[in-house]
Simulated scan of single mutants.
Amino acid sequence: MIADTLVQTYKVSFDENNQELALSGSMRPEHGAEMEACIQLLERSIASIRGTFYINVKRLVRLNNVAFHALAGALLKAADERPDVRISIVTSSVIGWSTKKFGTLSAKNPRIAVEEYDSEFYPGQSFLEEGGFVPVLRTQTKLTWKHERSILPRHGLTPGATMADICCGIGDFAVLVAKEFAPSRIVALDHSKSSLAYARQVASEFDIGGIEYIYGDAAEMLLEDGQFDFVSCRHALQIFNKPEMIVDELVRICKPGGRVYVTNEKISQCLGEPRGPSIQWTYEQLSKLFADFDMDLEFGPKSYQALQKAGLEDIRIESFMVTNRDGDAQAFADMVMAWEEMFAGGMCEKRGDDAAFVEKFRRGFEDHIAAALHPGGYAGWPVWVASGRKPQ
């Protein structure tokens, strides 16, 4: 969940997924009372988190003494009252004064740290930089979580359940489930050691306990039969050339009567206006590009049949559209920008596409970004959800 308050010439927002309060614009109030809404959101945000709380001031271009004293007072009070919380203020060398100004708080309380951000990634980051793909995965989860948090109970996830998240990637979905549903046990498995290392780091910094991170092959897991009430596998079947092998494993580790839950895409149905034809062409080509690497980004609607063939019962399937109108148009645009670099860059180069194709391919992504940010534009990314019950 993201809460936003627009106050005069600055914006303050809280991102629950990243445990980050972001301040941007120009904060120059004449009286402390003008900071009341901002301070109230800050206090509510800190009260709702555990572990590390991030204050992102990278885009805060001006801050007068009235605003600084209000923020400093609230942060020092929080650091005194919440010894279990670490406060990290993320500054930028581009805004030269911010590191020095906020650095004075570290001297007053060592649980307040100042981190000058340039190109290195940190867990509070919500956009892609320097070609890394971790941030865009976090952004995707942030965008889909707004839908999935209400969808999951319809597909059988209940508080206190035992859960396995297979192909967990960077682990942010498992963290959100832990916060929202408090499963009695969560096992998160992935074949990427670097992703698991990142997932463990985030869980530690956000003080999320009880998630067991396991290195393993989703098609041949070293987990015993029938352990879990709920087994999830998100955006993964579509990137394996033999998804049925993974589905069989998901079913195997699920308890009789438990449910297997999967999400996948039908990427050719990404849409946007204005410039709809260009956008449609690019995503149709993206589907073909993945097919050339034995991956199926059209798998979403096929999930029903895949679960049916695996012997599951009471199969439920639905879809939702992630859009720029969900409340964070910039995050949607950042996600598409990262797709462009990953797919029109590395994958097209590996396939050997010529310059004319790549230019046209990129144009569709850029038109999708423009649609997302256009005041009257609409941009969408469709996701399919399916689940089935393992027979007793």
Rank of each mutant, 00 (worst) to 15 (best):
K108G: 05
D296P: 01
K101N: 02
F181Q: 05
R185P: 02
I170L: 10
K302C: 05
D225H: 05
A355P: 02
E284W: 10
V336R: 02
G96R: 14
E249Y: 06
E220Y: 09
Q19W: 07
R363M: 11
K309P: 01
C168V: 02
V175T: 08
Y10K: 01
I208M: 11
F127Q: 06
S287E: 14
I112F: 06
G160A: 06
K142G: 06
P243F: 10
I89E: 11
G345L: 12
G276T: 14
F357R: 00
V322G: 03
S13G: 06
A379W: 08
L222S: 13
R362M: 11
L271F: 15
S150E: 15
V90T: 04
E30V: 12
T52K: 04
G364R: 05
K288L: 15
E249T: 02
E249P: 03
A338P: 03
D4L: 13
G156P: 02
G96H: 13
I89F: 08
E318M: 10
I39Y: 09
F361S: 00
D229I: 04
L41Q: 07
L42M: 14
Y213A: 02
R316W: 06
E115P: 00
L6D: 12
Y283G: 07
V175E: 14
A67R: 01
A379T: 01
P382R: 10
E20Y: 06
F181S: 03
R149K: 13
F343C: 08
E366K: 10
F206P: 00
F332I: 04
V175P: 02
I89M: 10
T99C: 11
E180K: 12
G209I: 06
R86T: 11
A306V: 12
K242T: 14
A79L: 06
T91A: 04
V90N: 01
G380Y: 07
M321N: 10
G216K: 05
S106C: 11
R351Q: 08
D292F: 07
I166N: 02
A197G: 12
I89K: 01
K193E: 15
P183K: 01
L312Y: 13
P110I: 10
T162C: 03
D353I: 01
L196Q: 01
I39V: 15
F228P: 03
L297Q: 09
A70L: 05
F14A: 02
H147V: 08
E36D: 14
E36H: 13
L271Y: 15
W339S: 04
F14I: 08
F299K: 07
